[in-house]
Design a protein around this nucleic acid. Sequence first.
DNA 1: CGTTTTCATCGTACGCCGTACGAAGTAGAA
DNA 2: TTCTACTTCGTACGGCGTACGATGAAAACG
Lengths: 253, 253
Amino acid sequence: MASERSGAGDPARTLELLWREPASAPHRGPERGLDIDTVVAAATDLADQEGLAAVTMRRVAQALGVGAMTLYTYLPGKAELLDLMLDSAYARMSRTDTAGAPWRQRMIAIAEENRALFDAHPWAATVSTLRPPLGPGSIAKYEHELSALDGLGLGDVEMDDCLTHLLTIVASCARAAADARATRSDSAMDDEQWWAVSAPLLARVLDERTYPLATRIGTAAGTVHRSAHDPDHAYRFGLQRVLDGLAVLIDNR
Amino acid sequence: MASERSGAGDPARTLELLWREPASAPHRGPERGLDIDTVVAAATDLADQEGLAAVTMRRVAQALGVGAMTLYTYLPGKAELLDLMLDSAYARMSRTDTAGAPWRQRMIAIAEENRALFDAHPWAATVSTLRPPLGPGSIAKYEHELSALDGLGLGDVEMDDCLTHLLTIVASCARAAADARATRSDSAMDDEQWWAVSAPLLARVLDERTYPLATRIGTAAGTVHRSAHDPDHAYRFGLQRVLDGLAVLIDNR
DNA sequence: CGTTTTCATCGTACGCCGTACGAAGTAGAA
DNA sequence: TTCTACTTCGTACGGCGTACGATGAAAACG
C-alpha cells in the first residue's frame, strides 16, 4: 500500500462504530470476550511502540490472546480499525482553554496540542485525513480548534482555511519526525553514519562549480542541524511563518 | 508498510545507481536485455497510471516482459527503484529562469514547477523525502530552487528553511490531491455519494448545540468546496499565506 | 576448437499480509 | 430438548518482497 488512509471503510458501518451505536437486541450465543475499545487500545499500543506497519490483524489479535479472525467479529476490517484508532487518539487530546488570550497565543496552543498528539502517536501523522473519521473525537477536536479562531473577524470558510493551513504545517513536520525515527530504527544507521558513507561517494560525482548553491547551502544546513533535515527546527520556523502569514489576514481587517 | 520512504536502500549502491556509475569491466555472460532507465521508466509509467501501490516487482517485470527476479540483476531491491524513480522525475522537471523577477514571482514559479511535478506524478507526493536521493535530478532541482532565493539577503540556513517551508505546503496539498484521486478511484464512491450516505447517520448522533462551530463551519466549507476538502483551494490559500509569511522575513531586512 | 568461467535469466519457495469461508462449540429461546 | 443465533478461529487463497539455486549463453583461455 502506498499509504494508509482514513475513511477507507464502509461509511455507514464506520460511523456506527465511531459513535458506538449499540448493536441492537440481546444476543444469543456465548458472551463476547472483548470489546471494541480493548481492540482499539491494543492496536494503538502496538502502533505507538512499533509503528503502524506493525499493526496487522494477526499481531493485534496475538496481543489480545485471540485468533486473528476473532477481530472480524468486532470490526469489519482493518480500515475501520485505523479510523477508530485515530478518532480515539483525537478524543484523548488535551484541549487548553485560551479564551481571551491574543490570537497568536491561541494558535500556538492549537499547534502544540497537535504536536503533542503526534509525539505520543507518531503513526497518526502518517495517516491521510482527507476524509477524516467523523467520530466524537474528531468533531470535538474540530470544535475546539475552531473556537480558537472564533471572533477574529474571519469568514466561515476562512476559519476552516486558516485552521487547515496551520495543521498542515504541524502534520508535515510530525510526519518528517516520524520518518526520521522510523529510518533510524529500521536502518540501524543514524544520519551521521549515513552521511559518512554517502559523503565520499558524493564528493566524487558532485561538481561544486556546477552546483555552487546546492553544495554551500546543503552543507550549511546539514552542519547546523547535524542531519539532512531537522523536523523540530522546521516546525519552529514554519509555525512563525504561518503566524506571520495569518497575521496579514487577521490584523489587517 | 505505513508509508513509502526514499533513501531506504544501501546508500553506497544507491548513489552508484543514481549517478549511473559504470559497472566496470567487460562482461562475460549473455548480453543484458534491458537497462536501468528502461526499468525505471516502466515503473514510473505504472505508478503514474495505477498509483504507487501497483508498482510491485512482479508487475514491473511483467510490463517489461521478463521474470520478476530478473529485475534484481539491475537493482538491489525495490527501495532503490523508488529512489531512481524520484530522482529521474526530478531531473525531468522544467526549470524556469526567473532571474531579475520580483521574489514573490520567483517563489510562485518554484511552487508551480513542483505542482506540475506532482500533477504528472501524484505518487511522488506520497513518498517521504526526509533522506532525499542525492542523485543528479535532486541536486539540480535543489540548485535551481535555491537560485530563486539567492540575493534576497537571507542567510544560508534561512534560504534552506524558506525553501523547505514553501515545498512543504506544495507537497502537502499534492498529497491531499493524490489521496482524493485514489479515494475516488478505489472506493467507487465520490465525495458527494460519501456525504449522502454519511449525512443522515451523522445528523442522528451529532448534536448541533454541543458542536455549534463544527457544524456551521464544516457545513460552510463543505458547501463551498462541494467536498470535505478542496486541495486546490488549500494550495492557493496556503501559497498566499506562505508568501505573506516569508515577506516578513525578506522585506523587513 | 573444446573447456572453463562468469554472468543473465527466472522458477520455486518462504514468510509475511488481509480476509473469505466454514466447522465447532456455546447459550438463550421455543 | 431442540433449535437457532452467535462467537471463535483453523485453513486457505492470492497477493507481496526477495533468497536460493538451476539453466543456459557467451566470452576467455588452453
